[in-house]
Simulated assay, not measured.
Amino acid sequence: MNGAAPAASDIIHGAFVRLNALAPLDQTAMSALNAAVARARTVSARTEFQTEGEVAPRVTLILNGWAARTRVMEDGRRQIINFLLPGDLIFTQAADQLAVANLTAVTDLVICDGPDPDVSPSLAAAYTTSRYIEKSFLYGQVSRLGRLTAQERVADVLLELLERHEMAGLAQAGKFAIPVTQEMLADAVGLTPVHVNRVLQSARQAGMLTWKGGMIELHGWSTLRRKCGHQRLRASSFYRGDRSSHSNGHERAESPTP
Rank of each mutant, 00 (worst) to 15 (best):
S143V: 09
V180Q: 06
Q151N: 15
Q201S: 13
S136I: 12
Y139P: 02
S136V: 12
R131I: 09
Q141F: 04
L209W: 10
D187T: 01
Q172M: 13
A206D: 13
Q141K: 08
T210I: 13
V154G: 02
I133W: 12
A168W: 01
H165P: 03
P179K: 06
V180P: 04
T181E: 06
N197Q: 14
L162K: 01
A186Y: 00
R147Y: 00
A203L: 12
I133F: 10
H165E: 14
V199E: 09
R144T: 07
L158P: 03
V196M: 02
E166N: 15
L138R: 12
S202A: 14
Q182M: 09
A171P: 01
E152V: 01
P179V: 07
A168Y: 05
L209E: 05
T210L: 12
V180M: 14
V194G: 09
Q201R: 14
S202E: 12
I133E: 11
Y132D: 13
L159V: 04
V194S: 12
Y132L: 15
A173R: 09
P179N: 10
N197M: 10
L161I: 07
R147V: 04
G174H: 05
G146R: 07
A206C: 05
H195G: 07
Q201M: 13
Q205G: 05
Q201V: 08
Y139Q: 14
A188H: 11
K135W: 14
S136Q: 15
T192H: 04
L148K: 12
L209N: 04
I178C: 12
